[in-house]
């Protein structure tokens, strides 16, 4: 997995590219925890370049979606790929963590 951050003011687009497997889910967790310590108020996770998403990564996304929301901040999935769509649909997670356009 490769990550890229596009920051504008208090908003951050977190672009995740490639394979998001178990070890990558751990890297994602660390990235998000580091972002939480900054003044960022909204995180938009762009999964359009991701070709694989494991359940550990879904757990990280859901957990931070809830935690940021509880603090009055925003943490959502903004874009997806067909592979990510398939996994999010199968697990019923799309409506929970993907922002509707």
């Amino acid at each position: 997995m490769a990550t890229r951050k596009n920051i504008a003011g208090t908003e951050c687009e977190l672009v995740l590219d490639g394979r998001i497997d178990g070890p990558a889910a751990h890297e994602l967790e660390l990235e998000v925890l580091a972002l939480a310590k900054t003044g960022i108020q909204s995180v938009y996770v762009n999964l359009s370049p991701a070709n694989f998403l494991c359940s550990a990564a879904i757990r990280v996304l859901l957990q931070h979606h809830r935690q940021w929301k509880a603090k009055g901040k925003k943490f959502v999935v903004s874009r997806t790929s067909p592979e990510v769509d398939e996994i999010l649909d199968l697990t019923g997670m799309r409506d929970l963590i993907v922002e509707k356009p």
Binding site: L62, T91, L96
Partner: peptide, 24 residues
């Protein structure tokens, strides 16, 4: 299997791995 019909607040964060393997 996880209950995919649960409301957002009640959805567990884990337990999806084996479910995914079986579904696939």
């Amino acid at each position: 299997n996880p209950d995919l019909g649960l409301p957002f607040e009640l959805r567990p964060e884990g337990g999806l791995g084996v479910f995914l393997a079986r579904k696939m």
